[in-house]
Amino acid sequence: MSKRIETTDLNVYYGNFRAVEDVTITIEPRAVTAFIGPSGCGKSTFLRTLNRMHEVIPGAHVEGEVLLDGENLYGPGVDPVRVRRQVGMVFQRPNPFPTMSIKENVLAGIRLNNKRMPKDDQDALVESSLRGANLWEEVKNRLELPGSGLSGGQQQRLCIARAIAMSPEVLLMDEPCSALDPISTLAIEDLIAELKQKYTIVIVTHNMQQAARVSDTTAFFNIAGTGAPGKLIEVGPTDKIFSAPDVQATEDYISGRFG
């Protein structure tokens, strides 16, 4: 199910402003890749190019390639809606649809894509998705209640269940624990460790300890100054990046000397 992502000389623009410059990286399947770096260095912007979410901002465009198992996601005739089904997204703050029940939240993507499904199949998909997000046992007796009534950590897992229901090949997570308490954060981190058995996972985090705990590969982004584009400085196995990085700026950031 999971797939390899490769970007080559990727530049990301908002109008004439280049936000990210010349990123070349390979993101391996069935593994967790963490993007770290100071605020404003392009981590989240680059993350959003991996499923064309940045295009919802007028004037945004890219130069370069993003390949999903060899297919250029920006090739002629490629449907961005299909890309977003293949490459799911979990955002910084839990965002269940407030007027929908827990069950309706899980099925929201299916219905938005006009997929017709018998009730028994819907029920099976809701259960399997909630089990995949480690949420089923907590909510199985209140599926018709509003998703907004769950705790913050439960809401984030509901959003992960909603993404899983679309059968993606890649899961992008933009600071998925930044709004959560430590116990909920641990639950999400445990879930990420389980999900990587099936999916390619890319996570943006400002939490160095979290990156060290959950990721197999770490990529460090940095920025030269205000108005300069973000750049990928170094990428490698997480153990090496945190113990013996090749670039001094990486070590300075990880050790807390800046950022």
Rank of each mutant, 00 (worst) to 15 (best):
N16F: 01
I36Y: 03
V214L: 03
V202K: 02
S215N: 02
V12N: 01
G132K: 03
G40R: 06
I183S: 11
E127Y: 02
D123E: 15
F97D: 01
M1G: 15
L150H: 08
R93W: 10
V83S: 12
A108N: 12
L125E: 08
S178Y: 06
M1P: 13
I241C: 01
D120C: 00
L107G: 11
T49G: 06
N105V: 11
D79G: 07
N95P: 10
V90F: 04
A211C: 03
L172I: 07
M173W: 05
L125S: 09
N72E: 03
P237M: 01
Q156G: 08
R93Q: 13
S39Q: 06
R82M: 07
V66S: 08
Q197D: 14
M166I: 07
F17R: 15
E65V: 00
M53A: 15
K140E: 13
N105L: 13
T200H: 04
Y74W: 04
A31L: 07
G40P: 07
G77W: 03
T33N: 12
T250I: 04
V62H: 07
V23R: 04
G227E: 03
A244E: 14
R157I: 02
I183D: 05
S128L: 06
L10K: 04
P29G: 06
Q248D: 15
P29V: 00
P182A: 08
S215V: 02
V32S: 03
K103C: 01
P80C: 09
S2P: 14
D216N: 12
T185M: 09
I223R: 15
L186W: 11
R4Q: 15
F97N: 02
R85L: 10
G88Q: 04
I192M: 15
F17L: 14
L172P: 09
A187I: 00
V106M: 06
Y74M: 05
V106Q: 05
P96S: 12
M100Q: 15
R85V: 00
L135V: 05
P98K: 13
I233G: 00
I164C: 05
A224E: 15
V56P: 00
D69K: 09
R157H: 11
A133H: 00
I183E: 12
K140H: 13
G147Y: 11
M166K: 07
M100A: 13
E55K: 01
A249T: 14
I223Y: 03
M208K: 02
Q197V: 02
P146T: 08
E55G: 04
A31V: 00
M173I: 07
G109H: 00
G152V: 10
P245G: 02
S243M: 08
T238G: 02
P98G: 08
P29A: 03
T24L: 08
N114R: 15
E63S: 12
P118N: 03
G109N: 11
I164R: 04
P96G: 09
P98E: 03
